[in-house]
Design a protein around this nucleic acid. Sequence first.
DNA 1: GATGAATGAGCTTTCATTCAT
DNA 2: CATGAATGAAAGCTCATTCAT
Lengths: 205, 205, 205, 205
Amino acid sequence: MQIKKEDLRTKLLDAAEKEFYMKGFEKASIRAIVKAAGTTTGNYYNYFESKEALFEALVLESDQAFHVMMDHEEAIDRPDDLWHTPDVHAWREQLKPFFKTLLPVFNRRFYLLIARSEGTKYAGRREVFNRFFAEHFIDHMARFNPDYPYAPMGTILAKQLVDGILNIIESADTIDAYEDIVIEFILFIAIGTMGILQRKELSHD
Amino acid sequence: MQIKKEDLRTKLLDAAEKEFYMKGFEKASIRAIVKAAGTTTGNYYNYFESKEALFEALVLESDQAFHVMMDHEEAIDRPDDLWHTPDVHAWREQLKPFFKTLLPVFNRRFYLLIARSEGTKYAGRREVFNRFFAEHFIDHMARFNPDYPYAPMGTILAKQLVDGILNIIESADTIDAYEDIVIEFILFIAIGTMGILQRKELSHD
Amino acid sequence: MQIKKEDLRTKLLDAAEKEFYMKGFEKASIRAIVKAAGTTTGNYYNYFESKEALFEALVLESDQAFHVMMDHEEAIDRPDDLWHTPDVHAWREQLKPFFKTLLPVFNRRFYLLIARSEGTKYAGRREVFNRFFAEHFIDHMARFNPDYPYAPMGTILAKQLVDGILNIIESADTIDAYEDIVIEFILFIAIGTMGILQRKELSHD
Amino acid sequence: MQIKKEDLRTKLLDAAEKEFYMKGFEKASIRAIVKAAGTTTGNYYNYFESKEALFEALVLESDQAFHVMMDHEEAIDRPDDLWHTPDVHAWREQLKPFFKTLLPVFNRRFYLLIARSEGTKYAGRREVFNRFFAEHFIDHMARFNPDYPYAPMGTILAKQLVDGILNIIESADTIDAYEDIVIEFILFIAIGTMGILQRKELSHD
DNA sequence: GATGAATGAGCTTTCATTCAT
DNA sequence: CATGAATGAAAGCTCATTCAT
C-alpha cells in the first residue's frame, strides 16, 4: 500500500496544481488535494509542512525566474529598435528568438504565482508585474508621443500585457503553436499601442 | 433603533458591493457585510434570504443588460464600417457616440457579475462574454484575412477586450476621462488586431 | 433552547476553570469545556474569541493583583520587625491583619495564573513570583547571618513559599480555617528559615 | 548505518528523559524524542512498544525504590530521637549519614516518576508520596502537641516536604553542596514544624 | 424589525501508532 | 535493525444559516 515517496509527492503536486489553479490558494482545500492524490491529510503532512509550503513548492522556481525578469528590465527593452521597423513580418522574425528564452518561464506554475497566490506571501506579484510593465509603457509613450493626452492608458496597456500572457498560459494546453501565439500577441500589443499614439512608421510601404 | 427598511437594505447592498468586490462571492463574509452595514446576521436574513440572494440583488440589473447585449450582437458590429477608415482621429469621433450608450452598463456591479460571481449561478457569465467576442473576432479575422494562420488569436483577443473593459471599470474611480479611455482602449484593440492581420488601410496617409 | 448570554458565559468560565485547573492550558480541550457547559464549539466562539481569551478572562484580575503585589514589595517586608519578637503567639496576632488584605488574591484563578498558564502569555508568572521572594530571602539571610554557607537555600525557600501558597489555594475548598492556615504556613516558613540561620531570639523565654 | 542496540536505546532514554522532564508525559512528543536520538519513529517501536513503555523504562527503578520507601516507613522515623535534641548543629551531623542512603534515590528519574507522570499508570505516585508524609506529620503533631488546632497543616507540611525534595532535585545540576542542601532543607522543615507546634526545646541554650 | 445565541459541517494541522519494504 | 509512508482521531477555529425572544 506504500508508494515511493517521489511518486506521491508528484501526485500531490499535480493535484495541488489543479486545485490551486481552479480555486486559488485560499479556497483550495487540502482535503480535496489529498483525496485527488489518493492519500490522507495525515500523510500529506509527511510531504509538506503546511498548505503554504505546498504552494511554495509549486511556484518557487517561477518566483525566482520572476525576480530575474524584474531585475533585467533592459532585456524587455531590447526589441526597442523594432519600433522603427516598418514591416510586421520583420517584427515576427526578430521577436521570435528573443521570446524563445522567455517562453519556458510562462508556464502553469508561473500562472499560479501571479494569478492564484492571494493569501500567500507571493500575493503581491501580479501588482509588481503590472507596475513593471506600466513604467515601460509610460516611458515609451512619453518618448513616442509626448502630447498623447490619455495618461492612464499606460497602466491599462501594462495590465493588458500581463492579462494576455496569463490568458495564453491558461489556454496553452489546447494551443498548437504556443510560441507563435505569444509573438502574435506581443505584436498585437505593440501595434495597438503605436496606433493610438499615432505613430505611422509601421505598416507603411 | 429601527431604521427604515430601505435604508438598511441600501446599506447592506453597499457593504456587500465592497465586500464582494474585494474578496469575490465565496470568500466574502456575511459577518463582515452586516458589521459594515451596522446590523446583525439575524437581521440580515430579514432582508435577504441567503448569501447568493444578496449577490443576485446586486447584479440582477447588470445581468439583464448583459443579456440584452448578448442578444443584440449586431450593435457591437455597428462600427464595422470603421475598419475601412484610414484616420485614427475619425475613429475616435465615430466611436464616441456609440459607446456613450454602452458606458452606463460598465459599472461596478457589472464587474461583480462578470468577475466576482464564482460560486453563484452567474459563475459562467465571463465565459459567455468571452465567447461572444471571440466569435466576432474570429468572424472579422476570417473576413479581413482568410489566410491568417493563428486561429487561437480570436479567443485571446476577445479575452483581451473583456479584461480591458473590466480593468477600466476597476480603475474608473481614479480616472478623469473615463469615457475617452474606453474609446482609446477600443481603438487600441482594433488597431492591434488589424495590425497582426496585416491590413494596411489604417494610418495610411 | 437559548440561554441568557451571561448564564452561558458563566457556565463556560466555570467549566473552563475546572478544565484548566485539571489539565493546564495546553492540554485543556475546548471541546471538553463546551460539552461541560452544555453548548457547541461554534457557539463558544460567540463568547470568547480564542482559547487564550477564555484563559485570560479567568485570570486577568488575578494578574493585575499580581502586578500590584510585585510593585509593592515593601508591603511584604512590613512584618520585618516581627523577626525580633520572641513570641509565636504575638506573631500570629500581628500577621493576621496583614494577610487579611492578601487573602482575597489567593484564589483558584490566581492559582491558574501562576500554575496552569504554560502556553499562554502569562507563562512566566511563577518564575517572577519565585524570584521575587528569592530576592527577599537572600536579603534576609544576609542580614541575619552573613556567614550562613548554603546560598541556594534562598531560592529553595522562596519556592517553598510559593508552592505552599499554591498548595493551600488548591485545598482551600476543603479547609475550614483558611485564613488561619495561611498564617500558620507563613509562621512555619519564618521559623524554619530562622532556625537554619541559627537565630535564637525566637522562642526564647 | 546501524548502531549497536544498546547505544540507541540509551540515546532514546536520554532524549526521552529530557523531553519528559521539560514537557511532562502527555505533552512530550515521540517525534521530538526520536529526532533528538537520531533515529526514526518507525525504528523507535523496535525498542519500545509504546510511549508509556518508554516512560516506564525510565522510571521503573525509581518506582521500585519508591515502593521500598513506602514500605519501610520506620526508616523515615528513625531520626525521631532528634526532635529532643536542642542543638541545630547536632541535628545536621546526625541527619547526614541517614540521608546519605536516601540521596541516590532522589535523582532526575525519580522526579519524572513523581512530577511528570500524569497520563501514565504512575500518575498517582505524588499523591501517595504526599499522603505518606502527611500521616507522619499528623502523627508527630498529635504526639508533640495534641492541642494544636490546625489539622490541615499536616497535609500542607507533607506537601512542602515533597515539593522541596522535587525542587532540590530540579536544581541539583547547578548546586554544589547538594547533600548539605537536602540536610538544610529537612532541618528547615523540622524546625518550622516544631515552631508552629510551640515546642521550645530546640535552640534553647 | 431586530437581536445574537445556537447549530453543524467545514477548515488546517498534530499526534501516536502501524506496517510494507 | 531501520526507514518513513500511511492511518485516523483529535485539536482549535470559522462560517452561513436558523430561530427564540
